[in-house]
């Protein structure tokens, strides 16, 4: 009996140590990134420690100014001009589509649902070029329209699928009771189902936000004038400009700022992230 207790404790301790070690190795680069942003350019390459010898905000101030005529204020503003509409459109359109699939019967429903799932797996690499040519033809290049508009049509199947799964877990009795009370189908969605859907919608908001913040290839292809650059492209521009002496500390400071919105959102809404990944179990 005693022996098995000891064995249990040893087992527990080993698990703990492995977990801590892995977490430390994984997070160290990021912690170091944050601390390096306060160091001056020389200290970055001479110390692997986390604690900067003095708190120095100049790399933030200088980095924010950038080498271009625009500051990071412009780039952040641009990023939000893309991200916020995407989040709103995506939530509205995906909820409506998911409602259609989860609560109605119609011809070809099975086939259409299969198509929805198929689009989740279809490599984007195939569709990217013709869409670029399409937007070029109607003179929409160098605008945010090509980056945003597909969210108006619920084209990110991940979100639709996640909401369908969630809707299926809400009992139909609620809908039926509401029908008897005289609600039409749209009122059932907005008045009855929407409140229960809140956690799933939160997950969608968060994922869409983070993915849109990270999006790099979209703006790389479509946005060509510097004044319209989002943060991701502005960062890329700053590594390209590394001729001569590189102000690494400034670039690092701006990298920290660039991931800050996603980090804040993550820490304030962790449970929705975990729920989102596990309930429908996709991607990331």
């Amino acid at each position: 009996m005693q022996k098995s207790m000891i064995k249990k404790h040893v087992n527990y301790t080993i698990r703990y140590l492995v977990l801590l070690l892995v977490a430390f190795v994984m997070l160290y680069p990021m912690l170091w990134l944050i601390s390096a942003s306060f160091k001056d350019n020389n200290a970055i390459f001479t110390s692997i420690g986390l604690w900067p010898n003095k708190l120095d905000f100049t790399s933030y101030v200088k980095g924010w100014q950038t080498g271009t005529e625009f500051t990071f204020s412009t780039y952040f503003f641009n990023t939000f001009k893309i991200v916020i509409p995407k989040v709103i459109f995506c939530i509205v359109s995906s909820t409506i589509t998911a409602y259609g699939f989860a609560r109605f019967d119609f011809r070809f429903k099975k086939a259409l649902f299969s198509l929805l799932i198929a689009t989740m797996f279809l490599p984007q690499v195939i569709t990217r070029l013709p869409l670029y040519l399409l937007w070029r033809q109607i003179d929409m290049l160098d605008s945010y329209v090509p980056l945003v508009i597909n969210t108006l049509f619920a084209q990110e199947a991940f979100f639709v699928f996640m909401l369908i799964q969630f809707l299926r877990s809400i009992p139909m009795d609620l809908d039926e009771a509401a029908t008897i009370d005289g609600c039409n189908s749209f009122q059932i969605l907005t008045k009855i189902l929407l409140p229960s859907l809140k956690p799933a919608i939160m997950s969608c908001v968060i994922f869409q936000f983070v993915w849109s913040m990270n999006d790099f290839m979209g703006p790389l292809i479509y946005i060509s004038s510097v004044e319209k650059y989002p943060v991701s492209i502005a960062l890329k521009m700053s590594i390209d400009n590394t001729s001569g002496i590189v102000a690494w500390n400034q670039m690092i400071a701006m990298s920290v700022i660039a991931i800050l919105p996603s980090l804040i959102l993550f820490f304030s809404a962790q449970k929705f992230f975990v729920q989102g990944v596990t309930s429908s179990g996709i991607k990331g």
Binding site: G100, R103, D105, T119, L129, F153
Partner: peptide, 25 residues
């Protein structure tokens, strides 16, 4: 299962699939 109106809700997605998947494919 309600029967009417289903198409109406998935219509935007259907149009979207034609524009953003079927056509470019």
């Amino acid at each position: 299962m309600k029967n009417r109106g289903g198409y109406l809700y998935i219509l935007p997605w259907c149009i979207g699939v034609l524009i953003f998947t079927v056509y470019p494919f």
